[in-house]
Amino acid sequence: MADKIAPARSFDRANNEMRPVKLTRDVMMNADGSCMAEFGNTRVLCTASVEEGVPAWRKGSRSGWVTAEYAMLPASTNRRTKREIGKRKGRSMEIERLIGRSLRAVCDLNKLGEYTITCDCDVIQADGGTRTASITGAWVALHDALDSMLERDLIKRHPLTGQVAAISMGLVNDELLLDLDYPEDSHAQVDLNLVGTEAGGIVEVQGTGERSTIDRAQLNDLLDMGQAAIARLCDLQNQVTAFRD
């Protein structure tokens, strides 16, 4: 177990430990699939909605589409966040594109037919890692939406080819840390997000040197921590969905 930094991290955890994670299914009555993803004090409501039809550029392809939308509710942060009405924030658009790419990486769209599934990720409470919590919870919501399509005989085979989850990490006070909360993220020298699969595949790596740099050995250490965490998150996803059973 890695040594702790001073002051102690939230939830009294070691450098290579995640915050307590909870995935709760079926939290929205009208959604085709839903999941509340909780990483410590970060809470994201993820829903998946099935609609017949696809974007114009995919019509006639006999192939479906999975996309995402992301937003932070006004009281999700310590200062009220204005609703994105009319003009979307660049950050929100970047995050929802990341969520969409991550989900499509483990979905065979040819098995979906000409249906669109939109995964909405609404941040109820933000304390760091909202994009990674969104991806992890959205996979559960997507899984359940696809299950409902099978039950309604809208599709013949399950389009999911695997699981996808995500975790944040970084260099803070010259320490390599996993699953940054907001105080850590806001003071990070290097910030990194990892999206990966249950099989150990890497979907995407996002890394930025905010106040410093890391060397190749430190990057390898961060990726090792991140992939171990993603394996645990995928196990948790499987516990609530029985996808691999």
Rank of each mutant, 00 (worst) to 15 (best):
E84Q: 15
G86S: 02
K87W: 09
G90K: 05
R91H: 07
S92W: 00
S92I: 02
M93I: 11
E96T: 15
E96P: 02
I99G: 12
I99A: 12
R101W: 01
R101P: 00
L103D: 00
N110S: 15
G113S: 08
G113R: 02
Y115N: 07
I117R: 08
T118C: 03
D120H: 08
D120A: 10
D122R: 02
V123K: 08
V123H: 07
D127H: 08
G128K: 09
T130Y: 11
R131D: 04
A133V: 04
I135F: 08
A138M: 13
V140H: 10
A141H: 13
H143D: 11
D144M: 12
D144A: 07
D153L: 13
L154G: 04
L154H: 12
L154T: 05
G162H: 08
V172T: 10
V172I: 03
D174V: 01
E175V: 01
L176E: 02
L177T: 06
L177A: 04
L178V: 03
D179R: 04
L180C: 12
D181P: 05
Y182L: 11
P183E: 07
E184I: 04
D185R: 00
S186Y: 01
S186R: 04
Q189H: 04
Q189G: 10
D191Y: 03
D191Q: 01
L192T: 08
N193Q: 02
N193T: 07
V195P: 01
V195G: 01
G200N: 00
I202W: 08
V203L: 03
